[in-house]
């Protein structure tokens, strides 16, 4: 009697297990189809000519459907960004790490709170200000005040030559 019950239990458990794997195998394609498709992924990098950008000017380019700010910073802005003490920052990052070439700040123009595009040269720290929920960013795009949790993101980029930046 006891032996028989065990054999049944094993069969049930094995059936449930195979059924669960089968259900998972069917559900996963249904979920994954919503992830970025091949055509979206193919548009992953952009080259930008920055020869016309003078100091104190920002251009905005579209990369992966998101705005990227390319700002050629003035010497005052660089000095301001580099003089801030790390302990004063909500998300401590050195300006040297955010802008290897101090004159050029390349970052995603997306507020890290809920994804709005912050306004240039606004706010309490002479950097950016997000009009949606009032986040203030400094001249290095670091969060200083407001609900955003982190600094604006620096995308992967490199200078292909003196006047061309490749993002992505």
């Amino acid at each position: 009697m006891e032996k028989k019950t065990k054999r049944r239990d094993f069969l049930f458990t094995a059936t449930y297990a195979v059924g669960a794997v089968g259900a998972g195998a069917v559900i996963w394609p249904m979920i994954d189809q919503m992830n970025p498709d091949a055509s979206v992924k193919a548009l992953a990098s952009t080259e930008v000519d920055v020869s016309a950008v003078n100091p104190g000017k920002t251009i905005t380019v579209l990369w992966r459907g998101k705005p990227v700010f390319i700002r050629r910073r003035t010497s005052e802005e660089i000095a301001e960004a580099r003089s801030v003490k790390l302990e004063d920052l909500k998300h401590p990052e050195k300006d040297e790490d955010r802008a290897e070439n101090p004159e050029w700040l390349v970052m995603l123009g997306v507020c890290t709170h809920l994804g709005c595009v912050p306004l240039d040269q606004k706010g309490d720290y002479n950097g950016w200000f997000c009009p949606c929920h009032g986040s203030h960013y400094d001249t290095s795009g670091r969060i200083r005040k407001g609900p955003a949790p982190t600094n604006m993101e620096i995308p992967e980029y490199k200078f292909v030559d003196a006047n061309t930046i490749k993002i992505g």
Binding site: I31, M34, N35, P36, D37, V40, R64, G65, K66
Partner: peptide, 17 residues
């Protein structure tokens, strides 16, 4: 968020779903 959007920002795949 990327999964909801079907991309890296709100775009056509987001609209259709």
């Amino acid at each position: 968020v990327t999964w909801l959007w079907g991309g890296y920002s709100v775009d056509n795949p987001t609209l259709t779903r």
